[in-house]
Amino acid sequence: MNIEIALTVNGETVRETVEPRTSLADLLRDRLRLTGTHLGCEMGSCGACLVMLDGAPVHACLVLAVQADGQKVETIEGLNESGHVSDLQAQFHDRNALQCGFCTNGMVMSAQALLSDNPRPSRAEIRDALSGNYCRCTGYEAIVDAIAATADRRAGIGETVE
């Protein structure tokens, strides 16, 4: 069985014909070549595949493309182009909060969602928000630092990183 779907990806309408078993992540990566959405475990554990679905982060490995029919998807490419996370990206860069970068897409998605719900999170709240995001490189500390620093900057505290 193949099903025709239409969804909005990074502001553009996309029409595709997919097998029902196609995950949203496979649609984004293989068909649309949006490879910033990473695939690790394909079972909801690692968080590398997060995308925004109707404004909230979800695992693209656990959402089927057919389930996203009619909905709005934003990937890291879209967030990047929008400039909405440029301050977060700069902090990640500045603090070495990424090494191989495999987890970074998911970290940025989780961080962005956290900061929009809770602009002044404690370090414990930041860690809690990242509980579903694995990083095998950094030891997390620099990631928490980068998110805390972004929260400070957005609240007008401290210097802006260029």
């Binding site: 909801g44 968080g47 909230a56 982060p57 979800v58 695992h59 656990l62 956290l114 509980s131 579903g132």
Partner: peptide, 9 residues
């Protein structure tokens, strides 16, 4: 229950 992104679905 699980993690924030899983709770969204």
């Amino acid at each position: 229950v699980a993690h924030p992104a899983i709770r969204n679905r």
